[in-house]
Amino acid sequence: MTAAIVRAMALSLLRDRGALAMTFLLPPVLFVLFAAVFAGTGGEVSVIKVAAARATDAASAEVFLAALHGAPDIVLERVEPAAVEARVSGGAADVGLVVRGDVAAPTDKPPLLLVTDPARNVAAALLAARIQRVLSQDLPGLALRRVAGQIEVLVGPFSAEQKSRLEQSVARAPELVASGGAELMERQPLPQRRAEPGVSYYAGAIAMLFLLFSAVQGAGSLVDERRSGVLDRIVMARGGVLALVAGKLIFLILQGLALCAVLFAVAQAVYGVHVLPHLGPFIAVALAASAAAAGVALPLAAVAHTRQQAQTLSTFAVLLLSAVGGSMVPRFLMPQWLQQLGVVTPTAWGIDAFQGALWRGEGMDTLAVPLAVLAGFALAGTAVTLWIIRRQVRLA
């Protein structure tokens, strides 16, 4: 009997080509993508977007920026010094860099100013490491001249007065170091918001992840209705397929709004995430993100023939969109090709919209683009679902 049950289940799986492919074909695909995502978190393959400006006439500044621009893991955007902070604050750059002094000479303050967003502190650390590597590997002359100049500031030239000046310099060494004479870089964080930036980011990331999971779970009723014959009776009623899809879309949006309300209420109460001060933009983002999740879930449920297919396909899609879109690892830590691929996922746009509304405090005018993209996912998914169900009804 046991052998017969095993044989029956094996035959059932082998005859269901969709379930067979999802069971043995999709896991290796997910492995390759997840390996690429998490390989970038160590920083070796991460590409950092840097808004760089030159605020000095020193010749070494241009040489340094040119060498940094040539680094394979740096995307350098040259802007005016006054625009650096705005580029970082708006999310267009991961970190800002202002060359404000001679990199090849001792200065009274660090010649390099890193403008950092607390939500992306790791990007500043990665840039600092890249700068050290550029100076040591590509521009060792600049580094040597700076060290030589610093030694000269401390001990003076070797002359008859060397001993006296050495003693004076040694006495002044703490003052020189405290004033930045021995430092190369200084960090200037953006003004701190009330909530921790990491909490604000992952509130949006977790919201997008569970919006997708809850949407695919709710949309799975399409499979049961089709297999039980209820779908045929529904589409013959008033409104037909349009009423069916519209009803499911509205329910999934309302379910998503309720999920966001609970999640962000906890984020506001426990971690001080700015929800109530930005309630209007937050509701707009939550509405668009819920609609986009429904737009992903409905076609997946419509195309699946069995619950097993729907469950496997939906899990694969949610994990894929969440990994590539940034729900698990911030996208700026991923390889460049994955960062570009993430732009086509609703997860990436939803996370950016939530962070823009709650962390950066952006208004509806700034959020118009991500909201429009999320709405586009919802409309496209709804249209595809209508086409699939109408085609199934005609073929039945």
Rank of each mutant, 00 (worst) to 15 (best):
V84G: 01
L97Y: 03
L112R: 01
V99D: 00
V103E: 06
E85R: 14
G91T: 06
R87M: 14
V99W: 00
V99L: 00
P111A: 10
K109W: 08
D108T: 09
P110W: 04
G101F: 02
P111Q: 07
P81K: 01
P111D: 12
T116H: 06
G90D: 15
V95C: 05
L113Y: 07
L112C: 07
V79D: 02
L114N: 11
G101N: 04
V79H: 01
A104W: 03
A104H: 10
V84Q: 02
A82S: 08
L113K: 09
V88W: 04
A104Q: 07
D108Q: 12
V115L: 09
A93L: 11
L113C: 08
V95W: 06
E80K: 14
A92G: 00
V79R: 13
V98W: 00
A86M: 09
V79E: 01
K109M: 10
P106G: 08
V79N: 01
V79W: 03
A83T: 12
G90M: 13
G91V: 08
R87K: 15
V95H: 01
A93E: 00
L112P: 00
P106F: 11
P81M: 05
A82T: 11
A93G: 05
V98P: 05
D94M: 06
P106Q: 13
A93N: 07
V79A: 09
D108W: 10
T107C: 13
A86I: 03
V84C: 13
R87V: 00
P111Y: 08
D102E: 11
A105T: 09
L113G: 02
V95L: 10
V95Y: 04
G101L: 05
A83V: 10
L97D: 10
T116S: 14
A82Q: 04
L97Q: 02
G91Y: 10
A105H: 11
L97V: 03
P110Q: 05
P110D: 07
G90H: 08
G91C: 14
A93M: 11
D108R: 14
P106Y: 06
V79K: 01
G90A: 15
T107E: 15
P106T: 09
V98Y: 03
A104C: 10
P110Y: 04
A82L: 13
T107N: 14
V98F: 04
E85Y: 05
G101Q: 05
P110K: 02
A93Y: 04
A82R: 15
G91F: 09
E85S: 15
A83W: 03
V84F: 01
L97R: 05
S89H: 13
A82H: 12
R87H: 14
V88A: 12
V99E: 00
V99A: 07
G101I: 08
A104R: 10
A86F: 06
E85M: 14
T116D: 11
D102G: 05
V88R: 02
K109Y: 06
V88Y: 04
P110N: 09
D102F: 03
